[in-house]
């Protein structure tokens, strides 16, 4: 067991709509990542995975609001800190973020080097321009990015180059935790590969200590991350190693999800493809019992009024279902 880099305890956040309604988008999420590990988060769109990424930064602006819970980065609890302190000492330097739409993440009218200066100076106001350039050039060279990019504007870069630049800028301060929200979804296959390779390199070289990778593409997670976590309706329904999650999912939702996609591995070719019927619940009024009950093939009456707890196993796996492991295995074997 390595050092825990990021720990999230019972985190709850909400969106407040224009009509002053609360949407409980992240509702009691707990997990941890150890040093040197990467964790993938999967789920349907709207399940709260992107919101979870934003909530973990400890820096909230409307319409997102913090309710309760702890975010602990390398032993330091940031959830009680003042926003301005979070900005100065945590964002970018301890925890970094790669946004969903990296295409538009860079200010179009600013040169990359100027933005790099702004990022570094936000944490070290006295940083010298020349040093910053040297540092940026060295990092770019190490990551295989041409240093000419530094003197270009974002609009002059191709999509893949923009994404890799965003990753390089995000990690320039060697943050302990990197949160990547669909960093490769909008890219072509070649660029996608380069992005993944780059993130792996960053981990291997120790520039980042832990990584959280959010995507709706499960096959990708299987190839990239050590562990996989599945989210449903603002909660984690199951967590396990990549292999376990793909080949041996426990929770009925994960089970349905894994069966609704094609994993390019031997043996999956003949599998039946099934979609999960129904739609996720409205998070303005979350259901009282299990959130998946309405769509669950195996739901029993008590599932509709008893909320299942997060059940950990001894080997680090956990799931959220009223049924026992054996019961589930038994049910699946009849499929």
């Amino acid at each position: 067991m390595g050092n825990v880099m990021l720990e999230v305890r019972d985190l709850k956040t909400k969106y407040v709509t224009r009509f002053h309604e609360d949407v409980y988008a992240v509702d009691g999420v707990s997990f941890a990542i150890e040093e040197g590990k990467s964790l993938g988060i999967a789920g349907e769109s709207g399940c709260g995975k992107s919101t979870l990424a934003l909530s973990m930064m400890g820096y909230y602006f409307p319409p997102l609001h913090y309710i309760s819970g702890d975010i602990i980065i390398d032993g330091r609890n940031i959830s009680g800190m003042k926003p301005d302190d979070v900005r100065k000492t945590i964002l970018g330097s301890e925890i970094a973020y790669i946004p969903q739409a990296a295409m538009n993440a860079l200010n179009p009218t600013q040169k990359i080097i100027r933005f790099m200066e702004d990022v570094i100076r936000a944490h070290d106001p006295k940083a010298d321009k020349k040093e910053i350039r040297e540092r940026a050039e060295a990092r770019f060279a190490e990551l295989g990015l041409p240093k000419e990019v530094l003197d270009k504007h974002a609009v002059e870069l191709s999509g893949g180059m923009k994404q890799r630049t965003v990753i390089a800028v995000s990690t320039i301060l060697n943050p302990k935790v990197l949160i990547a929200d669909e960093p490769s979804s909008a890219l072509d296959v070649t660029s996608q590969k380069m992005v993944i390779k780059m993130m792996r390199e960053l981990m291997e070289k120790g520039y980042i200590k832990a990584m959280l990778f959010i995507t709706h593409e499960l096959p990708l997670l299987y190839n990239v991350t050590d562990d996989i976590m599945v989210m449903y309706a603002g909660q984690i329904v199951e967590r396990g190693t990549a292999k376990e999650m793909v080949f041996d999912p426990m929770h009925p939702y994960s089970y349905g999800l894994m069966n609704s996609i094609l994993v390019p591995e031997e043996g999956t070719r003949g599998n039946k493809l099934t979609a999960i019927p129904g739609t996720p619940p409205n998070l303005k009024r979350p259901p009282k019992g299990c959130r998946f009950a309405e769509r669950c093939k195996y739901a029993k009456p008590e599932c509709f009024y008893t909320a299942p707890p997060q059940k950990p196993f001894d080997d680090g796996r956990m799931y959220r279902c009223l049924m026992g492991l054996d019961q589930l295995k038994e049910v699946y074997s009849h499929e």
Binding site: R87, I90, A96, P99, A105, N107, Q110, V119, V166
Partner: peptide, 23 residues
């Protein structure tokens, strides 16, 4: 999106407002 991204890199709001108004 760049406003959100710059905020999450710890850049000060006053600086970001500068980007926005220039653009």
């Amino acid at each position: 999106d760049y406003v959100k991204y710059a905020r999450f890199l710890g850049i000060k709001d006053s600086k970001i407002v500068g980007y926005v108004f220039r653009n």
